[in-house]
Design a protein around this nucleic acid. Structure first.
Length: 430
RNA sequence: GGAGAGGUGGCGGAGUGGUCGAUCGCGCCGGUCUCGAAAACCGGAGUGGGUGCAAGCCCACCGUGGGUUCGAAUCCCACCCUCUCCGCCA
């Protein structure tokens, strides 16, 4: 959510930033609503002040025993009442109109974000590791001989439809190991605070992170109104909603391992094979709540936390900074980390790390009290995957596959696998 | 699901119709005292909005939304949430 005062102070800058996102200028219409809104507020409050004064006088008249004056004031107030009701309703309508207009406008990119209309404008900022040289044609994860039988899309479809999977045997054990490894690494090495949250949340929680009202079709809702979280970013970030924290308590760096649910509306036909894009998947998420001036440093820190997981797993990746046209709704700046998938011969997104500045905080009314004194200010919020567990499973399988259909597993996972080091050609953990 | 209790400022806790935005205590900030600290004493301090160059002034906020009244933290209604007990249950 944007601050109308900022727009009022510099409408040209606002429109210029919108145009970098490929959007038309909006400041003029927003300011027109704002002007009407403020005029109504002034009128309503002026009328209210008059009524308050009369009521106070009425009390005085009554206690003096001046019945005539009391009756006169009483009639005056009664007469004013309709005016006030009308003016207040108008003021509220204008206020709501402004909010409705503002809440669907995406966050503005930072100056340092590269311009671009779509993913073609993204800029690679670094690359780590070297894709293996295969002396055979590497397969996609679901085609690997030892894996196929333990990654059952057919029966999942029987239970639930497309974009679901049933995992068994060595594959599910590896999947579980990955989630635990990520969580342990973030808690032990990166000092993130492990958190367990609900995955069913209220509408206002979804609103706080910007998933509502604009993106309702991307998520699932229960019959009694709860939303299934599309990412743990939603519950983690909203932990500070409506609160005022002390600056000394910041930054708050959290991580959580949760199920995520996405309708994948609009991605029909995309990534239909394998478990790259599922309606239900696991993700280890990171969320940081900090002061606005530290947000960029925290953004780099969080990116490094995500990259560290891939480095420990020995999976080659590249990190890109998304251009203005490819960023998500709430983001000011986003790093995507893309893991190398030999089966696809491509880098594919495995993490997205964003700083939202004060955009979400304004929606959530999440603030901090500055140590130096002064008024509470909105916090900055950041979120990033660290990492998507299912996609990481794919990366580990495809990068570790051998000609005979077996898979060598990264050393850091061995302790999580009871000391086992690979999946044999027959699909056993050995 | 049933019964009961309760939701007030950072926290605790008063306040049952008229300068109550709200007594008080703790905590917090500034000062006096002290070599320094503690204690004591003095003073300050809510959030949002509108208006103004500013000082300031005005409006709203005592879970939420309505209602009664000239006037509501206080009365009435609905809803939400929390806690306790019972039932059921992973």
């Amino acid at each position: 959510m944007h601050d109308i005062r900022t727009i009022r102070e510099n409408p040209a800058a606002f429109d210029a930033a919108l145009s970098r996102r490929g959007l038309v200028s909006m400041s003029a219409q927003l300011l027109a609503i704002d002007e009407a809104r403020r005029a109504r507020i002034l009128a309503a409050e002026t009328a209210q002040a008059a009524q308050n004064a009369a009521s106070k006088e009425a009390g005085g008249a009554k206690s003096r025993g001046d019945e005539a004056e009391f009756q006169r004031l009483r009639a005056f107030v009664a007469e004013k009442k309709d005016d006030i009701a009308r003016l207040t309703a108008e003021a509220e309508a204008q206020d709501a109109a402004l909010k409705t207009a503002l809440e669907v406008i995406p966050n503005l990119p930072l100056d340092q974000v590269p311009d671009g209309a779509d993913e073609a404008g993204n800029v690679e900022i670094r690359r780590w590791g070297h894709p293996r040289n295969f002396d055979f044609t590497p397969k996609e994860h679901f085609e690997i001989a030892s894996i196929a039988a333990q990654m059952d899309f057919t029966r999942a479809a029987k239970l639930s439809g497309s974009r679901f999977v049933v995992l068994q045997g060595a594959v599910v054990r590896l999947h579980r190991a990955l989630g635990q490894f990520m969580l342990d690494t973030h808690v032990n090495d990166h000092e993130l605070q492990e958190t367990w949250t609900p995955v069913l949340v209220k509408s206002e929680t979804m609103y706080g992170t910007g998933n509502l009202p604009k993106f309702a079709e991307d998520s699932y809702q229960t019959t009694n109104g709860w939303w299934l979280v599309p990412t743990a970013e939603v519950p983690l970030t909203n932990l500070v909603a409506g609160e005022i924290r002390d600056e000394a308590d910041l930054p708050i760096r959290m991580t959580a391992h949760t199920q995520c649910f996405r309708s994948e509306a609009g991605s029909a036909g995309k990534d239909t094979s394998g478990m790259l894009r599922q309606h239900q998947f696991e993700k280890v998420e990171m969320v940081t709540i900090c002061t606005p001036d530290t947000a960029l440093a925290e953004h780099d820190r969080m990116t490094a936390c995500a990259e560290a997981i891939l480095q420990k797993l020995g999976i080659p990746y590249r990190t890109i900074v998304l251009c203005t046209g490819d960023m998500g709704f709430g983001s000011q700046k986003t790093h995507d980390i893309e893991a190398w998938l030999p089966g696809q011969n491509k880098f594919r997104e495995i993490s997205s790390v964003s700083t939202c500045g004060q955009f979400q905080a304004r929606r959530m009314n999440a603030r901090f009290r500055p140590t130096a004194g002064g008024k509470p200010e909105f916090v900055a919020t950041l979120n990033g995957s660290g990492l998507a567990v299912g996609r990481c499973l794919i990366a580990v399988l495809e990068n570790g596959q051998q000609a005979d259909g077996s898979v060598d597993l990264p050393a850091v996972l061995h302790p999580y696998l009871g000391g086992k080091t690979r999946i044999s050609a027959t699909g056993a953990l050995v």
